[in-house]
Design a binder for these strands. Structure first.
Ligand SMILES: [Mn+2]
Ligand SMILES: [Mn+2]
Ligand SMILES: [Zn+2]
Ligand SMILES: [Zn+2]
Lengths: 152, 152
DNA sequence: CCTCTTATTGACAATGATTTTCATTTCCGC
DNA sequence: GCGGAAATGAAAATCATTGTCAATAAGAGG
């Protein structure tokens, strides 16, 4: 699963080099549909390239997030989760269970929803002179498993 | 600025006691319009009650969040931020500058926006059998200060 | 008020994700 | 191939948040 060449351009554009470790991280992110943590990604990368260290994974994820190629999320479990922006999954929002931590992707937006967000984004960036590059929406609550049951 | 008595009820309802440290934390949260971290709150509390420890502040914030009286946010600067749910500020969403970390509250929703969220929330909770208790919306980008300028 | 039970607290240690450091290696234009 | 800048990995350092545990304080009942 080789990394598409258009990534090279992306990296060059910001004066960065395309390296094996970076490819490896991108490949893992491309292949998954889960919300991986830095360590998760490190383990996956490690299967193919045992020499690559966790530090580099962190650095790569940071860079990718800075470049806007990767989203960094916090679902409240004490570690960051990462998702490719242009991955297999299209743009989506999240449902997060505050009890067990389960995260559900949700992308079947109503057309109104998309329209409204564009509208709001435009209005906000004008009003606050803000250059909006992304948005994150999370619905919090209890999933079907945790609904009736006890806490923790 | 004494803590309203209705809090006592809230606490009793979950078998908890209303204590000085807890009052102090609530008072600080009530008095501010900022997005304070646990340590920020600790410093404020400390001015009035130097004996109260940081650990207790953390525990109190945890409890309040659990009770649904306080929102816990992550704006990407490595520490959690807290806001009273029923504070001086009404329900609002956030604009977060990914460069300098500035956070802007935004509550002048369009009526459509409110309507749509209720609608979506209803649809989602049915479809995924999820009991939705809250939502968080963040718009990410660069504030007016950071717009043209350099990074970091 | 006084007593008793138990939730709560505070000092301190421990945890664990993320960063820093720094010497070494790799990339890439020349 | 060379040379300088960018990138890497191992290990140490940071630092927000949690866990421990003996001491304290709420508040129900008398
Ligand atoms: Mn997702
Ligand atoms: Mn706010
Ligand atoms: Zn759950
Ligand atoms: Zn800014």
């Amino acid at each position: 699963m080789p990394c598409p060449p258009w990534w090279h351009g992306k990296f060059r554009d910001c004066g960065c080099r395309m390296t094996i470790p970076r490819q490896a991280v991108i490949d893992v992110l491309t292949a998954t549909s889960e919300h991986l943590s830095a360590e998760d990604i490190y383990f996956e990368v490690h299967k193919v390239y045992p020499a690559i260290g966790l530090t580099t994974v962190y650095r790569t994820l940071d860079l990718l997030a800075q470049m806007g190629m990767v989203f960094k999320f916090d679902f409240g479990d004490g570690r960051s989760r990462y998702e490719l922006v242009e991955g297999t999954k299209k743009h989506h929002h999240h449902l997060v269970c505050t009890n067990c931590g389960r995260v559900i992707d949700y992308s079947d937006f109503i057309e109104e929803e998309v329209k409204l967000f564009n509208q709001v984004e435009k209005a906000l960036s004008q009003k606050h002179n803000f250059e909006i590059t992304a948005h994150q929406v999370q619905f919090l609550g209890r999933c079907n498993n945790c609904k009736g049951g006890n806490n923790r």
